[in-house]
């Protein structure tokens, strides 16, 4: 199948097994620039695996993933790493901030990995921290900030490279609903303002409600609800 017209990132017929368990069994996906797509489904349905495949963290056993006209599964690990550094951003549920680095250093980290100088990287980091209303935490270490603040720092970090696709895996999973919603608001606002696509893995309907549309993953198969309806 050719990728849907205008799609930034699309996947077709993805299969991935971890040992005897089939995590993905013919999943499909596509997303346009500036679009927020929620990936929903019960626990263990393969949501996270789909995200990992789409982001090039995991290579599927079979199937194709096309990003911006390039075939992801044909790339080497180094190429995919480079792509993740330059074009993708990531927010996870928890455990993603380096505890030794200060918040601003954490946010600047992706830029530094790309070779940006420390000073410049931290300046850019601060801009994003302001947008996410956490610029007063710059000197603090992750252990010294609250969960919601930490997650906002993580969002700032995911956006600091101006990614074209933002992958968020249960970004509010560890937060209460008030903090969770604030993080979702800031995340989707920021993504829309930069025209970044957001792949949002969640099992919470209230978080998924921040998306433009949703796909449901069940037993390794995906279902794009827009096409059904």
């Amino acid at each position: 199948m050719t990728p849907p017209a205008g799609s930034l990132l699309s996947a077709d017929q993805l299969r991935k097994a971890y040992g005897p368990t089939l995590a993905l069994d013919g999943a499909e996906f596509s997303i346009h620039p500036g679009e927020v797509v929620a990936v929903m489904g019960p626990s263990g349905s393969g949501k996270s695996t789909l995200l990992h495949c789409l982001a090039g963290i995991v290579t599927p056993d079979s199937g194709t993933i096309t990003y911006n006209g390039r075939e992801l599964s044909a790339m080497s690990d180094a190429q995919r790493s480079a792509l993740r550094r330059s074009d993708f951003g990531f927010v996870f549920q928890f455990g993603q901030l380096v505890p030794e680095l200060t918040c601003v250093e954490n946010v600047a980290l992706p830029l530094r990995l790309n070779g940006t100088s420390r000073k410049e990287a931290e300046r850019a980091a601060l801009t994003w921290m302001e947008r996410l209303e956490v610029d007063d935490l710059r000197k603090k270490r992750p252990g010294e900030v609250s969960g919601g603040q930490g997650q906002r720092v993580a969002v700032a970090r995911s956006l600091v490279t101006n990614p074209r696709v933002l992958f968020a895996d249960e970004p509010t999973g560890a937060l209460d609903s008030l903090n969770g919603e604030r993080v979702m608001e800031l995340l989707t606002d920021a993504a829309r303002s930069t025209n970044a696509a957001v792949v949002l893995v969640t099992h919470e309907a209230r978080v998924a409600a921040y998306s433009d549309r949703e796909i449901v993953v069940r037993d390794g198969k995906s279902r794009d609800m827009e096409r059904v309806v």
Partner: peptide, 13 residues
């Protein structure tokens, strides 16, 4: 472990 995986995810060599 979590942290390392996250770092790799966003492209750390």
């Amino acid at each position: 472990k979590k942290l390392l995986s996250a770092l790799v995810a966003f492209g750390t060599r």
